[in-house]
Simulated scan of single mutants.
Amino acid sequence: MKKTLRNNSLTLAFTALLLVALVGQALTGRAGYNESALDLGLPTASMLEYLTSSQFTVDVAENWQSEYLQFLLYILLTVWLLQRGSPESKPLGSPGRETDEDHKAGRYADDHSPRWAAVGGWRTALFSRSLGPTMGAVFIGSWSAQFIAGRSAYNAEQLQDLQVPFSWSQYLVAPDFWNRSFQSWQSEFLAVASMVIFSVYLRERGSPESKPVGTSNTATGVEG
């Protein structure tokens, strides 16, 4: 058990942090929701009612879709684009998909290679490009959830203000939907760009996201 926990500690730690953050979001979000409801003379929501509300769903989905978009673009762009001196980049002379030999794919697979990496044909081709489409599917799913829940939350406010609710097509081009999206995206792009360039000049001893402390600032694709 101890070995299993140690070997999966990074995933478990971030899963625990996710749950803590979701609980915190639920508690503070419900408090803010009920404050607004009292100010407007509307019924307050129980925790279960708030957790199943469009307001909570759109806030969660808005954050999730931007995170998966960040990783989708990062995975795909780092295939071809490089950054001199960053451990987040491949070495400067190796943009592109690289060879089967580089990736131990097909006839170059060894005894420890995943089965689909070794069998060749369409299965190896699919496995070789499985991470990006998976991230893309989660992004599309969470962005769709943001769109559906966002329209519901927006229309609830419209009805409170005695305004006409929006149709699906109207909400698709509405400022509310795109403002939520762009607001999330810009923060993710800033974070990635900062990580890429900061890692050229700064170090974090012991982290695989950092170069070794004494490595040259111009060394590219070198991880600690």
Score class of each variant (00 low, 15 high):
10 L>G: 12
77 L>R: 06
103 H>K: 06
63 N>I: 13
203 R>D: 02
67 E>W: 14
102 D>M: 14
194 S>C: 11
9 S>W: 14
191 A>S: 09
218 T>C: 04
163 Q>C: 10
192 V>F: 08
125 A>M: 06
14 F>N: 09
38 L>F: 10
17 L>K: 01
96 G>M: 04
114 P>Y: 07
31 A>R: 10
178 W>T: 01
77 L>V: 07
16 A>V: 07
177 F>W: 05
207 S>V: 07
19 L>T: 06
91 P>F: 01
166 F>R: 15
136 G>R: 01
52 T>Y: 10
181 S>D: 12
17 L>Y: 02
107 R>L: 12
187 S>T: 08
116 W>T: 02
95 P>I: 07
173 V>Q: 08
134 T>H: 05
45 A>G: 09
180 R>W: 01
172 L>A: 10
99 T>N: 09
119 V>K: 04
2 K>I: 14
149 A>D: 01
19 L>H: 11
144 S>K: 04
131 L>I: 11
216 S>D: 11
136 G>Y: 00
160 Q>M: 15
209 E>P: 10
96 G>H: 03
55 Q>T: 12
33 Y>T: 08
87 P>T: 01
198 F>V: 12
69 L>F: 07
76 L>P: 05
170 Q>G: 04
182 F>P: 00
52 T>E: 10
70 Q>W: 12
174 A>R: 03
117 A>Y: 00
25 Q>D: 05
78 T>E: 05
180 R>C: 00
24 G>W: 00
88 E>W: 10
130 S>F: 10
51 L>Q: 03
38 L>G: 11
19 L>N: 09
211 K>Q: 01
223 E>N: 15
135 M>H: 11
140 I>G: 03
108 Y>F: 09
44 T>N: 06
51 L>I: 00
78 T>G: 03
169 S>P: 06
166 F>M: 15
143 W>Q: 09
194 S>G: 15
141 G>E: 02
135 M>I: 13
9 S>R: 07
166 F>H: 11
71 F>V: 00
40 L>S: 15
1 M>E: 12
210 S>R: 03
197 I>L: 14
163 Q>D: 12
36 S>W: 08
60 V>C: 07
81 L>W: 11
79 V>S: 09
129 R>D: 11
